[in-house]
């Protein structure tokens, strides 16, 4: 087991290293010159040169990369080209907001998705199944920006039960914070729950007809226990899909934060792209990639926990 985890950690580190190169080069492939954006259209060439000098933009790209990665390893992600605030500081400020949003969305997605998936698999071919499957299809097809606007229209404008936008820190006002988060988190979670619902249903249907479920039945256990036997073996697929969906979740968070005006990571990335603020862009994307890799590492570990056969294939055999 230890060896299995160690192997996955090494793979993750390599992935991160490669991702950092892609992010670094990708940012510089954006059309537009950060010095030009900072100094304005009709800036003096000497001023532009000074700005490039200040941020090291005049050096060869590989020198820039190694300087950047060397500093990044010590926790220094550079300073924002716009206001000279350290990138790490800005990220630390924005990250918890997006984490809260994503965490709530995952929670909502898991609860709705797995419950609906289990119910529709167990009640296969009944009205409940059709409703749940229909919900899954709608949840997959409806884009989150439209769902977000619809939610604002209904809950904030027509019924006026929840705020349309505006973010309050959790520390300042926990209730207000949750009231502000519930709509965006639900909007973000619905899409996830639709995917999870379909995965859970398909996996569980396959497992429910397995021989070991019949064995459980022959022991005289209740239908609920039978289902839990099958569910345990279905969750491996569900957990894998959850890890893979994280990328979509990050993308969804960017859109959702725009709609609900939440000052999180998504808004930060979009603003950084507009300002050609390379340090912020690199830092933010790198942190997002790290999160993605980290979650998939956790997924692999959870996978080994759920499926004992995986623990061997990791290497000790």
């Amino acid at each position: 087991m230890t060896r299995f985890i160690l192997q996955r950690v090494i793979t993750s580190v390599i992935t991160l290293f490669l991702a950092s190169i892609v992010v670094f080069i990708g940012a510089r492939m954006l059309p537009g010159d950060p010095a030009q954006v900072l100094a304005g259209e009709s800036a003096d060439p000497a001023l532009l040169e000074a700005i490039r000098e200040q941020f090291g933009l005049n050096q060869p790209i590989w020198v820039q990369y190694f300087t950047y990665i060397g500093q990044a390893l010590t926790g220094n992600l550079g300073v924002s080209t716009r206001d000279n605030i350290p990138v790490a500081e800005i990220l630390l400020q924005r990250l918890p907001i997006t984490l809260e949003l994503a965490g709530l969305a995952i929670l909502i997605g898991l609860v709705i998705g797995i419950t609906a998936g289990v119910v529709s698999a167990v009640k296969r071919g009944t009205f409940v199944d059709y409703v749940a499957t229909g919900f899954g299809l709608v949840g997959l097809s409806v884009p989150s920006f439209w769902l977000g606007l619809l939610a604002i229209l209904l809950f904030a404008i027509t019924w006026q039960v929840l705020p349309a936008s505006g973010f309050v820190g959790f520390a300042e006002d926990p209730i207000g914070n949750l009231r502000g988060m519930i709509l965006p988190a639900t909007v973000l979670g619905i899409g996830l729950s639709a995917v999870l619902m379909r995965q859970t249903r398909a996996a569980l249907l396959g497992q429910l007809s397995a021989d070991y479920v019949r064995t459980a039945r022959s022991k005289g256990v209740t239908r609920g226990r039978e289902v839990s036997h099958a569910l345990r073996n279905s969750l491996t697929t569900v957990v894998t899909v959850l890890g893979l969906q994280l990328g979509a979740l990050i993308g969804g968070a960017i859109v959702t934060e725009q709609i609900f005006v939440i000052p999180g990571f998504g808004k930060l990335i979009i603003d950084a792209v507009a300002a050609r603020n390379y340090p912020i862009l690199q830092g933010a994307v790198l942190v997002a990639v790290t999160g993605y890799v980290l979650v998939n590492l956790l997924v692999d570990v959870a996978y080994a926990y759920l499926n004992p056969r995986m623990r061997l294939s990791g290497g000790s055999e």
Binding site: A210, D211, Y212, R214, T215, A216, S218, H229, R232, N233, L306, N307, P308, R309
Partner: peptide, 13 residues
């Protein structure tokens, strides 16, 4: 009951 397929009749998890 004892079933025919010992390979699949026990829950792998």
């Amino acid at each position: 009951v004892v079933f025919q397929e010992p390979m699949t009749s026990l829950n792998p998890a």
